[in-house]
């Protein structure tokens, strides 16, 4: 008979972070430690329910002995590491990375925390040149069905949607990064429309998008009408009714109407991911 495998107990390590000695469990990333210590660390491509891809580089920190800055989201802390999260070097890189994005992408509909970070790092991309003179990702939004809007001029290529569509959640693989360099973009095969692709409309890509490039059509329409008002929205957590899995739903309600459905990323049943019924099957509530 086979034993149930049990992982070896993880040992404790100690690191110095911004001058402070801190204990952590082996395997913890530098970002995990920052979050535990309350050190506000900007992240764009990182999410707690996705595998770190360390591509956005706004979470970089300085590690003594390392030639370059290191991405805190994916680098496991090592015993004795000396880490600075707010050195001149770190601030300079974070600021310029935000500026590079801001110069090429429309960041207007980013999450509140992204906007706060941009303010914190005094992001000003004007010296790159005006947007009509330099390369940007400006393009019209793709609206191909009644559920999704893909507004890729807001896309920072954080890969989160690709991960959520693929092995981190849905295993549908409807979208991937295509092209290369500045032309790299998120696409279906041969850019076929979403209804013709493998998409199953779980909305998990929208759930993880940090810049409003992927939005539910309801939200897009309300934003275009000027009626979207996040401040007055209330969020209530309940359980989806469509099967026995027990997915938790966060119902975003504005003026007694459900306007969006998300799922808590830290809940063990969903890790923040849903299916088409949980995500969109609420119209009957208000019909």
């Amino acid at each position: 008979m086979n034993e149930i495998p049990v992982g070896a107990p993880r040992s404790q390590i100690e690191v110095q972070i911004d001058g402070k000695q801190v204990k952590a469990v082996e395997g913890a990333t530098i970002l995990n430690i920052c979050q535990k210590e309350g050190i506000d660390t900007p992240t764009l491509c990182w999410a707690e329910n996705l595998t770190p891809v360390n591509v956005c580089r706004v979470c970089v920190v300085e590690v003594e002995g390392s030639r370059t800055l290191v991405p805190s989201c994916s680098r496991p802390a090592e015993d004795g590491m000396v880490i600075s999260t707010d050195s001149d070097r770190v601030r300079k890189s974070r600021k310029l990375v935000f500026e590079l994005l801001d110069s090429s992408v429309d960041m207007d509909r980013s999450t509140t925390e992204v906007k706060e970070w941009m303010e914190h790092y005094e992001v000003d991309s004007s010296r790159m040149g005006s947007k009509n003179e330099i390369a940007t990702v400006a393009q019209p939004p793709k609206i191909q069905d009644s559920l999704y809007v893909r507004d890729y001029e807001r896309c920072i290529l954080c890969y989160k949607c690709v991960e959520a569509c693929g092995e981190d959640a849905q295993y549908t693989f409807a979208i991937a990064t295509a092209g290369r360099g500045f032309d790299a973009h998120i696409s279906t095969e041969f850019d076929v429309s979403l209804p013709d692709s493998a998409c199953v409309y779980c909305g998990n890509c929208i759930g993880v998008c940090p810049t409003g490039a992927l939005v539910f059509k309801t939200e897009h329409d309300m934003r275009e009408e000027g009626t979207w008002d996040e401040e007055t929205q209330e969020v209530t957590t309940t359980v989806c009714s469509f099967c026995g899995v027990g997915c938790n739903l966060e119902l975003h309600v504005q003026d007694e109407k459900i306007v969006k459905v998300t799922s808590p990323a830290d809940h063990s049943v969903t890790s923040g991911h849903l299916c088409i019924k949980g995500r969109f099957g609420w119209q009957h509530v208000q019909s």
């Binding site: 920072i156 290529l157 500045f182």
Partner: peptide, 19 residues
């Protein structure tokens, strides 16, 4: 032309440098 496009500093940085 040869940046893979994965990370922001290189993807956008090489463009701004060429500009």
């Amino acid at each position: 032309d040869e940046s893979c496009g994965q990370c922001v500093p290189c993807r956008v940085g090489t463009v701004r440098q060429e500009e």
